[in-house]
Nucleic acid binder design. Structure first.
Lengths: 132, 132
DNA sequence: CACCATTATCGTTAATCGACGATTAACGAA
DNA sequence: TTCGTTAATCGTCGATTAACGATAATGGTG
């Protein structure tokens, strides 16, 4: 799959994730409870099953639904283990989003830009005038 | 807007973005059209206004709504310029999400893990047994 | 002033999301 | 086999989202 590389300029990267793909990953992360689940899985050194339910202030069925969303997006995988299910992160699914965001950060950094301003490239070229 | 402050502290790096904050950024990116807008803004070396509307196969009002969402999240800023509006990216707003995702990638990378498997840390410690 | 181009907002509709309790399914253990 | 534990699924509800056309607002120009 896609390998983590730091010096990738967005355009010249071999395969670029589609808009739909990136949006799907972002959507899976677009809820505080799911971010919390990811953080929990990241912080634990061992597998956790229903502990997730106890950590979040949500009903079991709600947590299960959030886990389903994360699993569908490939961010989380679960292995059956006795009565519980062992959840863990699947970093691979996040790679395209990491790459996408990192590319943005790097492009802006390499251009030494203050952000939020109009016409960044024109500004960095001291050609700050009308933006047409 | 309600602010929940149940801060599940995991590792005290400087300041960690809240679950709500990260989810909000992800949510703003959680639509193909908005990803496309970000890409457009990233690829153009000059300001674009209504060109965005023409690039996306969506009605003007719909594009305006997507831009509003991105602006609300701070990802895009717009400067009025004659009849048009000059949109550009504000990388700062994405920093916390970039950091969050990069931290995940680095943690897994540093542990030399294959992902998607149960008990990554236990496995990397050759202690592959029951996950309790 | 009226005109024009551009963007924002309004109002509506269908679809999706998020939450919950209740129920079902798996499966090891007694 | 039955029991107990755990997770997934179902059904429902209110809230939110996404899309559109129509309309309003902005602001420079003739």
């Amino acid at each position: 799959m896609v390998v983590f590389s730091l010096n990738t300029i967005q355009k010249s990267t071999a395969e670029q994730a589609s808009n739909e793909e990136l949006a799907a990953i972002a959507k899976a992360l677009a809820h505080p409870a799911r971010i919390q689940i990811v953080r929990l899985l990241l912080s634990r050194s061992s597998c956790i099953g229903g502990e997730i339910t106890h950590e979040l202030a949500l009903a079991q069925s709600t947590v299960s639904e959030h886990l389903r969303i994360l699993k569908t997006a490939g961010i989380v995988v679960g292995e059956i283990e006795h009565p519980r299910i062992c959840y863990s992160l699947s970093i691979q699914s996040l790679q395209s989003l990491i790459q996408f965001l990192s590319a943005i950060g790097q492009q802006y950094q390499s251009e030494n830009l203050t952000d939020g301003l109009c016409c960044p490239l024109q500004k960095s070229a001291e050609q700050f005038g009308s933006c047409s």
